[in-house]
Amino acid sequence: MPYQQKLVTVAGYTVLLLTAAIFLFVAAQAWPFFREQVDLSFFTGDRWLPVSSPPTFQIKGFLVSSLMITTMAIVVGCPLGILSAVSLAELLPRQVSVRLRSVFEMTVGIPSVVFGFLGLTVVAPFVARVFNLNTGLTGFSAGLVLSVMVLPTLVSLADEALRAVPREYAEASYALGATRWQTIWRVIVPAARSGIIAAVLLAMGRAIGETMTVLMVAGGRLTTPGSIFEPMRPITALIAAEVTNAARHSEQYHALFAAGLVLFAITFAVNAIAAAVIVGKKGAA
Protein backbone atom coordinates (compact mmCIF):
# COMPACT_ATOMS: atom_id res chain seq x y z
CA MET A 1 0.00 0.00 0.00
CA PRO A 2 1.46 3.43 -0.89
CA TYR A 3 2.08 5.58 2.16
CA GLN A 4 -0.54 8.17 1.15
CA GLN A 5 -3.15 5.46 1.24
CA LYS A 6 -1.90 4.30 4.63
CA LEU A 7 -2.13 7.85 5.93
CA VAL A 8 -5.74 8.14 4.81
CA THR A 9 -6.58 4.79 6.37
CA VAL A 10 -4.97 5.82 9.66
CA ALA A 11 -6.85 9.13 9.64
CA GLY A 12 -10.13 7.34 9.06
CA TYR A 13 -9.57 4.87 11.89
CA THR A 14 -8.45 7.69 14.20
CA VAL A 15 -11.79 9.42 13.82
CA LEU A 16 -13.59 6.15 14.49
CA LEU A 17 -11.43 5.46 17.53
CA LEU A 18 -11.91 8.96 18.92
CA THR A 19 -15.68 8.68 18.61
CA ALA A 20 -15.62 5.28 20.29
CA ALA A 21 -13.33 6.68 23.01
CA ILE A 22 -15.72 9.55 23.73
CA PHE A 23 -18.60 7.12 24.02
CA LEU A 24 -16.62 4.80 26.29
CA PHE A 25 -15.51 7.70 28.50
CA VAL A 26 -19.07 8.97 28.95
CA ALA A 27 -20.33 5.44 29.58
CA ALA A 28 -17.56 4.78 32.12
CA GLN A 29 -18.32 7.99 34.00
CA ALA A 30 -22.04 7.21 33.95
CA TRP A 31 -21.57 3.61 35.10
CA PRO A 32 -21.18 4.33 38.85
CA PHE A 33 -24.53 6.09 38.71
CA PHE A 34 -26.39 3.31 36.91
CA ARG A 35 -24.83 0.73 39.25
CA GLU A 36 -26.49 2.44 42.23
CA GLN A 37 -29.73 3.27 40.41
CA VAL A 38 -31.81 0.12 40.51
CA ASP A 39 -35.20 1.34 39.24
CA LEU A 40 -36.36 3.42 36.30
CA SER A 41 -37.10 6.54 38.36
CA PHE A 42 -34.11 8.22 36.67
CA PHE A 43 -36.23 8.39 33.52
CA THR A 44 -39.71 8.67 34.99
CA GLY A 45 -39.23 10.96 37.98
CA ASP A 46 -39.47 14.70 38.13
CA ARG A 47 -37.13 15.65 40.95
CA TRP A 48 -33.59 16.86 40.33
CA LEU A 49 -32.07 17.78 43.69
CA PRO A 50 -28.32 17.41 43.12
CA VAL A 51 -26.95 18.96 46.34
CA SER A 52 -29.59 17.85 48.84
CA SER A 53 -28.99 15.09 51.30
CA PRO A 54 -29.80 12.57 50.08
CA PRO A 55 -29.64 13.86 46.50
CA THR A 56 -32.22 12.85 43.89
CA PHE A 57 -31.47 12.60 40.18
CA GLN A 58 -34.44 12.22 37.86
CA ILE A 59 -34.41 13.54 34.32
CA LYS A 60 -37.96 13.24 32.97
CA GLY A 61 -38.32 17.04 32.93
CA PHE A 62 -35.12 17.51 30.95
CA LEU A 63 -35.98 14.72 28.51
CA VAL A 64 -39.45 16.15 27.87
CA SER A 65 -37.95 19.64 27.45
CA SER A 66 -35.41 18.39 24.92
CA LEU A 67 -38.13 16.64 22.93
CA MET A 68 -40.50 19.62 23.06
CA ILE A 69 -37.92 22.14 21.90
CA THR A 70 -36.57 19.84 19.19
CA THR A 71 -40.08 19.14 17.90
CA MET A 72 -40.81 22.87 17.83
CA ALA A 73 -37.57 23.60 15.98
CA ILE A 74 -38.29 20.92 13.38
CA VAL A 75 -41.98 21.75 12.94
CA VAL A 76 -41.15 25.42 12.31
CA GLY A 77 -37.82 24.91 10.55
CA CYS A 78 -38.83 22.11 8.15
CA PRO A 79 -41.36 23.86 5.94
CA LEU A 80 -39.10 26.90 5.77
CA GLY A 81 -35.95 24.87 5.11
CA ILE A 82 -37.43 22.49 2.55
CA LEU A 83 -39.14 25.30 0.66
CA SER A 84 -35.95 27.34 0.49
CA ALA A 85 -34.06 24.25 -0.67
CA VAL A 86 -36.61 23.80 -3.46
CA SER A 87 -36.26 27.40 -4.53
CA LEU A 88 -32.46 27.18 -4.40
CA ALA A 89 -32.33 23.97 -6.39
CA GLU A 90 -35.16 24.51 -8.85
CA LEU A 91 -36.65 27.97 -8.99
CA LEU A 92 -34.05 30.70 -8.58
CA PRO A 93 -31.69 31.72 -11.40
CA ARG A 94 -28.39 29.87 -11.16
CA GLN A 95 -26.30 32.92 -10.30
CA VAL A 96 -28.62 33.93 -7.48
CA SER A 97 -28.76 30.46 -5.95
CA VAL A 98 -24.98 30.05 -6.09
CA ARG A 99 -24.57 33.25 -4.05
CA LEU A 100 -27.37 32.39 -1.65
CA ARG A 101 -25.81 28.99 -1.06
CA SER A 102 -22.54 30.53 0.07
CA VAL A 103 -24.44 32.91 2.36
CA PHE A 104 -26.29 29.95 3.86
CA GLU A 105 -23.06 28.04 4.37
CA MET A 106 -21.59 31.05 6.13
CA THR A 107 -24.42 31.12 8.66
CA VAL A 108 -23.24 27.71 9.91
CA GLY A 109 -20.27 29.56 11.33
CA ILE A 110 -22.31 31.93 13.52
CA PRO A 111 -21.48 30.96 17.11
CA SER A 112 -24.51 29.64 18.96
CA VAL A 113 -23.88 32.07 21.82
CA VAL A 114 -24.77 34.84 19.35
CA PHE A 115 -28.09 33.14 18.64
CA GLY A 116 -28.54 32.72 22.37
CA PHE A 117 -27.93 36.40 22.96
CA LEU A 118 -30.42 37.35 20.24
CA GLY A 119 -32.91 34.94 21.78
CA LEU A 120 -32.41 36.41 25.22
CA THR A 121 -32.65 40.06 24.24
CA VAL A 122 -34.96 40.03 21.20
CA VAL A 123 -36.96 36.82 20.78
CA ALA A 124 -37.85 36.18 24.44
CA PRO A 125 -39.26 39.68 25.13
CA PHE A 126 -41.13 39.50 21.81
CA VAL A 127 -42.66 36.11 22.66
CA ALA A 128 -43.61 37.33 26.13
CA ARG A 129 -45.44 40.32 24.64
CA VAL A 130 -47.19 38.48 21.81
CA PHE A 131 -48.47 35.61 23.97
CA ASN A 132 -48.88 37.76 27.08
CA LEU A 133 -46.62 35.50 29.11
CA ASN A 134 -45.08 36.08 32.51
CA THR A 135 -41.65 35.40 31.04
CA GLY A 136 -40.44 35.01 27.48
CA LEU A 137 -37.74 32.55 28.51
CA THR A 138 -39.70 29.49 27.43
CA GLY A 139 -39.33 26.37 25.33
CA PHE A 140 -41.24 28.20 22.62
CA SER A 141 -38.64 30.97 22.33
CA ALA A 142 -35.81 28.45 22.38
CA GLY A 143 -37.55 26.34 19.72
CA LEU A 144 -38.04 29.42 17.57
CA VAL A 145 -34.36 30.37 17.73
CA LEU A 146 -33.35 26.74 17.12
CA SER A 147 -35.62 26.54 14.06
CA VAL A 148 -33.43 29.22 12.48
CA MET A 149 -30.23 27.54 13.67
CA VAL A 150 -31.07 24.22 11.97
CA LEU A 151 -31.76 25.92 8.64
CA PRO A 152 -28.19 25.81 7.25
CA THR A 153 -27.97 22.05 7.87
CA LEU A 154 -31.47 21.45 6.58
CA VAL A 155 -31.27 23.66 3.50
CA SER A 156 -27.84 22.63 2.27
CA LEU A 157 -28.55 18.89 2.65
CA ALA A 158 -32.04 19.08 1.14
CA ASP A 159 -30.72 21.29 -1.66
CA GLU A 160 -28.03 18.72 -2.39
CA ALA A 161 -30.58 15.90 -2.42
CA LEU A 162 -32.78 17.82 -4.85
CA ARG A 163 -29.88 18.59 -7.18
CA ALA A 164 -28.82 14.94 -7.15
CA VAL A 165 -32.07 13.95 -8.85
CA PRO A 166 -31.09 12.98 -12.43
CA ARG A 167 -31.97 15.64 -14.99
CA GLU A 168 -33.70 12.98 -17.11
CA TYR A 169 -36.53 12.72 -14.56
CA ALA A 170 -37.42 16.37 -15.04
CA GLU A 171 -36.99 16.13 -18.81
CA ALA A 172 -39.22 13.07 -19.00
CA SER A 173 -41.82 14.90 -16.96
CA TYR A 174 -41.69 17.94 -19.24
CA ALA A 175 -41.90 15.65 -22.27
CA LEU A 176 -45.16 14.29 -20.88
CA GLY A 177 -46.54 17.81 -20.82
CA ALA A 178 -46.17 18.51 -17.09
CA THR A 179 -45.65 22.11 -16.00
CA ARG A 180 -42.59 23.20 -14.07
CA TRP A 181 -44.62 23.31 -10.85
CA GLN A 182 -45.99 19.78 -11.38
CA THR A 183 -42.51 18.52 -12.21
CA ILE A 184 -41.07 19.93 -9.00
CA TRP A 185 -43.75 18.65 -6.63
CA ARG A 186 -44.70 15.37 -8.36
CA VAL A 187 -41.32 14.24 -9.69
CA ILE A 188 -38.26 15.96 -8.27
CA VAL A 189 -39.26 16.31 -4.61
CA PRO A 190 -40.57 12.71 -4.36
CA ALA A 191 -37.39 11.46 -6.05
CA ALA A 192 -35.27 13.32 -3.47
CA ARG A 193 -37.50 12.20 -0.60
CA SER A 194 -35.02 10.00 1.23
CA GLY A 195 -32.34 12.71 1.03
CA ILE A 196 -34.77 15.28 2.40
CA ILE A 197 -35.81 12.96 5.23
CA ALA A 198 -32.14 12.44 6.06
CA ALA A 199 -31.64 16.23 6.06
CA VAL A 200 -34.54 16.63 8.50
CA LEU A 201 -33.15 13.91 10.77
CA LEU A 202 -29.66 15.44 10.81
CA ALA A 203 -31.18 18.84 11.55
CA MET A 204 -33.03 17.15 14.41
CA GLY A 205 -29.76 15.78 15.73
CA ARG A 206 -28.35 19.28 15.60
CA ALA A 207 -31.36 20.67 17.49
CA ILE A 208 -31.20 18.05 20.25
CA GLY A 209 -27.51 18.66 20.76
CA GLU A 210 -27.62 22.46 20.80
CA THR A 211 -26.58 23.72 24.22
CA MET A 212 -25.71 27.38 24.53
CA THR A 213 -28.91 28.75 23.03
CA VAL A 214 -31.24 26.61 25.09
CA LEU A 215 -29.25 27.33 28.24
CA MET A 216 -29.71 31.05 27.67
CA VAL A 217 -33.23 31.14 26.25
CA ALA A 218 -35.27 28.15 27.53
CA GLY A 219 -35.69 29.51 31.06
CA GLY A 220 -34.12 26.82 33.21
CA ARG A 221 -37.05 25.40 35.18
CA LEU A 222 -36.11 21.97 36.50
CA THR A 223 -39.49 20.19 36.42
CA THR A 224 -41.46 18.66 33.56
CA PRO A 225 -43.01 21.52 31.58
CA GLY A 226 -46.80 21.45 31.21
CA SER A 227 -46.61 23.21 27.87
CA ILE A 228 -44.05 24.68 25.50
CA PHE A 229 -44.94 28.15 26.79
CA GLU A 230 -43.27 27.45 30.14
CA PRO A 231 -39.63 27.81 31.17
CA MET A 232 -37.80 24.51 30.86
CA ARG A 233 -34.34 23.00 30.78
CA PRO A 234 -33.25 20.48 28.12
CA ILE A 235 -30.62 17.82 28.90
CA THR A 236 -27.81 19.74 27.19
CA ALA A 237 -28.48 22.87 29.26
CA LEU A 238 -28.66 20.79 32.45
CA ILE A 239 -25.22 19.35 31.81
CA ALA A 240 -23.69 22.68 30.77
CA ALA A 241 -25.11 24.48 33.80
CA GLU A 242 -24.11 21.93 36.42
CA VAL A 243 -21.03 20.06 35.31
CA THR A 244 -18.70 22.93 36.17
CA ASN A 245 -20.09 23.03 39.70
CA ALA A 246 -20.20 19.29 40.29
CA ALA A 247 -17.30 17.98 42.34
CA ARG A 248 -15.39 15.36 40.39
CA HIS A 249 -16.63 11.83 41.02
CA SER A 250 -19.47 13.07 43.20
CA GLU A 251 -22.91 11.53 42.74
CA GLN A 252 -23.97 14.65 40.83
CA TYR A 253 -20.99 14.30 38.49
CA HIS A 254 -21.85 10.71 37.61
CA ALA A 255 -25.57 11.53 37.30
CA LEU A 256 -24.73 14.28 34.80
CA PHE A 257 -22.72 11.80 32.76
CA ALA A 258 -25.68 9.42 32.93
CA ALA A 259 -27.84 12.21 31.48
CA GLY A 260 -25.15 12.76 28.85
CA LEU A 261 -25.23 9.08 27.95
CA VAL A 262 -29.01 9.29 27.42
CA LEU A 263 -28.48 12.30 25.16
CA PHE A 264 -25.74 10.45 23.30
CA ALA A 265 -28.09 7.49 22.78
CA ILE A 266 -30.83 9.74 21.39
CA THR A 267 -28.59 11.60 18.93
CA PHE A 268 -26.90 8.35 17.93
CA ALA A 269 -30.29 6.78 17.19
CA VAL A 270 -31.43 9.80 15.15
CA ASN A 271 -28.19 9.89 13.15
CA ALA A 272 -28.27 6.13 12.63
CA ILE A 273 -31.78 6.39 11.19
CA ALA A 274 -30.60 9.22 8.93
CA ALA A 275 -27.66 7.10 7.76
CA ALA A 276 -29.96 4.14 7.14
CA VAL A 277 -32.27 6.34 5.07
CA ILE A 278 -29.35 7.55 2.94
CA VAL A 279 -27.92 4.06 2.48
CA GLY A 280 -31.39 2.68 1.75
CA LYS A 281 -31.79 5.23 -1.04
CA LYS A 282 -28.42 4.31 -2.56
CA GLY A 283 -29.37 0.63 -2.40
CA ALA A 284 -32.65 1.27 -4.19
CA ALA A 285 -31.17 3.44 -6.91
Partner: peptide, 23 residues
Protein backbone atom coordinates in the same frame (compact mmCIF):
# COMPACT_ATOMS: atom_id res chain seq x y z
CA UNK B 1 -35.08 23.12 52.18
CA UNK B 2 -35.57 22.64 48.44
CA UNK B 3 -36.05 25.36 45.83
CA UNK B 4 -39.62 25.59 44.52
CA UNK B 5 -40.06 23.35 41.46
CA UNK B 6 -41.06 26.38 39.37
CA UNK B 7 -37.79 28.19 40.12
CA UNK B 8 -35.99 29.28 36.97
CA UNK B 9 -32.30 28.41 37.15
CA UNK B 10 -30.47 31.07 35.16
CA UNK B 11 -27.08 30.46 33.53
CA UNK B 12 -25.56 33.70 34.85
CA UNK B 13 -26.18 36.66 37.14
CA UNK B 14 -26.43 38.89 34.07
CA UNK B 15 -29.29 36.71 32.82
CA UNK B 16 -31.04 37.06 36.19
CA UNK B 17 -30.74 40.86 36.03
CA UNK B 18 -32.09 40.81 32.47
CA UNK B 19 -35.10 38.70 33.46
CA UNK B 20 -35.78 40.81 36.55
CA UNK B 21 -35.80 43.93 34.40
CA UNK B 22 -38.29 42.45 31.92
CA UNK B 23 -40.61 40.37 34.07
Amino acid sequence: AEFAPATMMMPSTAAIVQELAQN
